[in-house]
Design a protein around this nucleic acid. Structure first.
Lengths: 143, 143
DNA sequence: TTTGCAAGTGCAATTCATTTGCATCTGCGC
DNA sequence: GCGCAGATGCAAATGAATTGCACTTGCAAA
């Protein structure tokens, strides 16, 4: 899945008036290239491979700042820690493989549509939502 | 909303071989009568109104035990703490009013069906899922 | 009914993720 | 280059949840 022309996270940070410091530059790069949904510990170690001095508190603070500015999404799957991803091109939901912890993205316009519909009948506007489906690989012969 | 004939939580605990102790009896009663989705602190204070000696660690442990036995559902909305409800008659999802924190239950068979369908196309069996929709009351230009 | 003992409890201490106070540093606008 | 608000490093603090340990207690078996 290729990203079309799009501003980098760094550019979008600048536009928001955030200072691009050395730790932040590295954190942004790590986020940008991540293909998964790393937690803070994982981000921190990836960052330290590039820039060893960065403190984990800085990673925490940066994730909060970025989330507040809508540049990343914070997820909390059922493993205690928060996990992050750069805000995606388009919204998607997640399968979580309960055996491996692996996260797989998917999207269903139909589900999105029905959600809108139901919310409307309840008199609500949707602010955001999350749909996490915990799954395991299909087992033909259930033992 | 009335519950049809149904085993009480206490009965279901006994059936699972769990001992019905004094603290547990009260916790189960509180869970059974709760109309909302209390967190551990809230449960603890409701329990202590009836049985002041009960320790919060007991509430935590009991919630874990009950969840492991499938007698309650653990939710984690975006407020840090885990919140619980007795396993409902039938599965439902949640609206969370972002202004008030209020939780409203709803159910859509259509969404359930589409989830199954999508999971199948990905080769997964669904173990469980959660759909939380964060909403605010629809604002035309009232008031 | 009494008894044995594993399950459950109270309490305090611990763990784990996350936040924060504070002194220092540094982008970046001037 | 200067100044300073914003950012960082570090260590200590927080808050939810768990756990070790000694003590209790349901409840099955006798």
């Amino acid at each position: 899945m290729k990203h079309p022309v799009r501003k980098t996270l760094t550019e979008r940070c600048k536009r928001k008036g955030l200072r691009i410091t050395a730790p932040r530059r590295v954190i942004l790069q790590v986020l940008e290239t991540a293909q998964d949904h790393p937690d803070v510990d994982e981000l921190h170690s990836r960052v330290r491979e590039i820039e060893p001095g960065v403190n984990i508190a800085t990673v925490y603070r940066t994730m909060n700042t970025l989330a507040e500015h809508g540049l990343i999404e914070r997820h909390s799957f059922s493993d205690g820690r928060a996990r992050y991803e750069a805000v995606p091109e388009s919204h998607h939901d997640h399968f979580i493989n309960v055996d491996t912890g692996e996260v797989i993205e998917f999207r269903s316009d139909e589900i999105e549509r029905i959600q809108e519909e139901i919310a409307r009948t309840y008199g609500f506007d949707i602010v955001s939502h999350r749909l996490d489906i915990y799954v395991r690989p299909r087992q033909p012969d259930d033992d």
